[in-house]
């Protein structure tokens, strides 16, 4: 199993930390992982993305240009990364703020209204975990117990009190993810 994922959105949405928690969960489950962030000028301009690879085998290149799954959280990222999903792959996006919806017919497309839902139940801070939950429903590549361990490892100790809230957000995401275009 090798899963190549791009997570892309605005800085501050928790894109990099969502990737980090996923990567750490992979480490806890004894898988090979890599986490390659954008750190360049585009990050300073407000957008952020990270490539996460989780595999049972040694990872050759941490940088790839096509993905099994794209998780897209703003319009710029949609413009840039919709075309990078492998045929048969998955695109997950939050329609909040999206003006041009994805139109590909050769991939599976899901929406997750994470921003709306998170603010409704007072979970705005863990918006990214709602999105992660939706992803894990489709691709349970790491087991829930390892996600908890991943949270423990990647959150500073002073924030460990927030772990139950993060787990609640993950469950919420699993509930609210919706298919909009599925391949047979």
């Amino acid at each position: 199993m090798t899963e190549e994922i791009i997570i892309a959105g605005f800085g501050g949405q928790g894109v990099l930390s969502m990737g980090k928690i996923l990567a750490y969960s992979g480490v806890m489950e004894n898988k090979e992982v890599s986490w390659m962030p954008s750190y360049g000028p585009e990050m300073r301009g407000g957008t952020a993305n990270v490539i996460v690879i989780i595999s049972d085998e040694r990872i050759s290149s941490p940088i790839v240009n096509s993905f099994d799954t794209a998780i897209i959280l703003n319009q710029q990222s949609m413009d840039k990364f919709e075309k990078t999903v492998k045929p048969g792959g998955i695109l997950i996006y939050d329609p909040n703020g999206i003006t041009r919806h994805p139109g590909r017919k050769d991939i599976n497309i899901y929406t997750i209204e994470a921003a709306d839902e998170a603010s409704k139940v007072g979970l705005s801070k863990v918006f990214n975990m709602v999105v992660l939950g939706g992803y894990l429903k489709l691709k349970p590549i790491v087991q829930p117990e390892y996600i908890r361990k991943g949270l423990e490892k990647s959150l500073p100790k002073r924030h460990h009190g927030m772990i139950p809230e993060n787990e609640k957000a993950i469950d919420k995401g699993k509930e609210i993810i919706k298919a909009v275009h599925l391949l047979n």
């Binding site: 480490v27 992982v33 890599s34 986490w35 390659m36 962030p37 750190y39 990872i59 941490p62 940088i63």
Partner: peptide, 10 residues
């Protein structure tokens, strides 16, 4: 280089 400096691995 910047890629190896910035990326995370085990």
């Amino acid at each position: 280089d910047g890629a190896i400096g910035q990326m995370m691995e085990k």
